[in-house]
Amino acid sequence: METWIRPPLRTLRCRTVARGRLQQLNYIRNLPPQQVEEAELETHLSESVAPNASEALLAALGSCLSIGLHANALAQSIPIRSLEIKVEGDLNMTPVWGSDDVQPKIIGFASIRIAVTVDADASRKALAALLEHTVLWLPVASTLHNPVHLDVSLAPPAAALA
């Protein structure tokens, strides 16, 4: 019987293609493209047809937490009947666009709050311990609260690749 060993590091990829103005299509594996768009400065977020990048990050965090909670609950034989996760974050947009007040301040989320509503066959104490354990092992949450190496470079012109 062959034993499969999980590689210690896995590379995930996303190709983002600008569609003009403030719209992007993100290609991941062979899935349908995911649209992300920034609302124009004079447009309200509610008028956008797709999430902006910061909202997509909150969705990734909530999805990661949901998957982690389900997996850890299963491992502990805790059946979950329902799970809802509300994620909200405070984001100062003025320095991002280079408008208004450009004095140095936090760029990105200053604070993110998560409220978890779970209906499961377990005590509140057990559910709190499950949540605490799960959050410690979330890759998206860890990326947000631990420094991560970010390597950005300019790719060669398309003509040089031909």
Rank of each mutant, 00 (worst) to 15 (best):
S142P: 02
G68S: 08
S123R: 07
A50P: 04
S48G: 03
P32G: 12
I112G: 15
A126N: 09
D100A: 04
R6L: 10
L22G: 05
P104L: 05
P7W: 04
D121I: 05
L58T: 08
P51S: 06
G20C: 04
L69E: 08
L45D: 06
M1A: 14
I107V: 15
L58G: 05
T134W: 04
Q76G: 02
I107Q: 12
P51R: 08
H70K: 15
A159I: 10
N26R: 06
I107L: 09
G108L: 11
V135R: 09
N92S: 05
L154C: 13
S142N: 15
A18V: 01
L74Y: 14
L154S: 12
L138V: 01
A160S: 13
W97V: 05
W137L: 12
K125L: 09
R15A: 03
I67W: 09
W97D: 01
R15C: 00
P8Q: 12
W137H: 13
V36Y: 10
D90M: 00
S63K: 09
A160E: 15
L83P: 11
N26I: 00
N72V: 02
L31M: 09
S99F: 01
S63L: 04
P7G: 04
S63V: 02
L83C: 08
L45R: 13
G89N: 06
A56D: 03
S63C: 07
L127H: 09
P33Y: 03
E55V: 04
A158W: 11
L41Y: 04
I106A: 13
I67M: 12
I67V: 14
A59N: 13
L83Y: 07
R21T: 05
L31P: 01
A128W: 00
L45H: 11
L9Y: 06
T11L: 06
L138W: 00
A120W: 10
L12H: 14
V49Q: 15
I114D: 01
M1Y: 11
V118F: 07
V118N: 09
A53S: 11
E84F: 03
V152W: 11
V17Q: 04
V148F: 01
H149N: 08
A18S: 13
A73K: 10
V140H: 12
P32L: 14
A75P: 00
S54N: 10
H44S: 09
W97Q: 04
T11P: 02
A50I: 04
I5F: 11
A75W: 08
D119C: 06
G68P: 03
G20E: 00
I107P: 02
V49I: 07
A129L: 08
A75T: 06
V152T: 15
K125Y: 03
Q35E: 06
R124M: 02
L91V: 05
Q35R: 15
K86N: 10
Y27N: 09
W4G: 09
E88I: 01
V140W: 13
R29K: 11
T3W: 08
L12P: 01
L57G: 07
S77T: 14
L41S: 05
A122D: 07
D151M: 08
R19L: 13
E37S: 12
A56I: 02
V148K: 13
N146Y: 07
W4R: 14
